[in-house]
Amino acid sequence: SASLEDVKTAVLGLLVILQTKLYTLPASHATRVYEMLVSHIQLHYKHSYTLPIASSIRLQAFDFLLLLRADSLHRLGLPNKDGVVRFSPYCVCDYMEPERGSEKKTSGPLSPPTGPPGPAPAGPAVRLGSVPYSLLFRVLLQCLKQESDWKVLKLVLGRLPESLRYKVLIFTSPCSVDQLCSALCSMLSGPKTLERLRGAPEGF
């Protein structure tokens, strides 16, 4: 439990870093931090981490990651405290083949985003970082199938509809809506759902 406290501190630090690096160059920093966060949550489900502190780590990670939004130009952003989304000039939600690297070039400044813009690109060529939603999407499927803490599952179920409104997140990387529907149906009809959940409301 003591070591998990250190892990929790590290994860919180990564969330803060991602919130900053999403809007700064090099964009590969945001890509790497995002991948680290998603990989860490995957390990929770792989090794069945069920301690309360592990659940709190997942809760905080999902609470942040499910706020990711994308505009029509595929640029990622996060809402501010007033709910207004600021889109990044440097990070996009497109999935890119590994051989192309985590970044790609664009020939010049991008068109203005639909929300308040981030800082304008400084040079004639900007390297865009790929932060594909499919990585998070796979972890969300694991959550629906394996999550043991009701608070975490409730958060994910509550945030998913709003995330799905931003269709560009889903359609720019390999996210299977069929698998999502299947996971939701299995969660509702499967007898093991109630068996594994802690803290579920009576009558769920």
Results as ranks from 00 to 15, higher is better:
L155V: 13
F171S: 11
D178N: 12
Y90Q: 05
V38T: 11
K145P: 02
S173D: 05
C143H: 02
R86I: 08
M36D: 05
R86M: 07
S130T: 09
G118C: 12
L110M: 11
L194A: 10
L67P: 05
A10I: 00
L43V: 11
D149W: 02
G203Q: 08
V139D: 03
K151S: 15
G199E: 10
A27I: 13
R159P: 00
T106I: 11
R198Q: 10
S48N: 15
L14E: 01
S107V: 11
S148V: 10
T31R: 13
I17C: 06
L160M: 09
L135R: 14
G158F: 09
L135K: 11
L67I: 06
Y133T: 07
V7M: 03
S148H: 13
L78G: 05
I53T: 06
L51Q: 05
L197D: 02
S186E: 12
F204K: 03
P52G: 07
S56T: 11
E5G: 10
P191T: 13
A125P: 14
S1I: 09
C181N: 03
R198Y: 09
G118N: 12
G77C: 05
L43Q: 14
P89C: 07
L67E: 13
H44Q: 04
E202D: 11
R32F: 02
M96P: 11
Y133W: 09
H47C: 13
L141V: 09
K145G: 11
T50W: 08
S48Y: 12
S182C: 08
G77E: 03
M36Y: 01
A183Q: 15
V33A: 06
G115M: 15
L18N: 01
L15Y: 04
S163Y: 07
A70Q: 02
K104V: 15
S56P: 02
G203W: 05
S56I: 09
D149N: 07
C91P: 02
V85K: 04
V11W: 02
K154V: 04
H29R: 04
S72I: 11
I53Y: 03
L110C: 15
Y166S: 09
K21I: 00
K8H: 09
M96V: 11
A200W: 06
P201C: 13
I57P: 00
L136S: 07
P132Y: 04
S39A: 10
D6M: 02
L4T: 07
T106M: 12
T9H: 08
G190Y: 11
V11T: 09
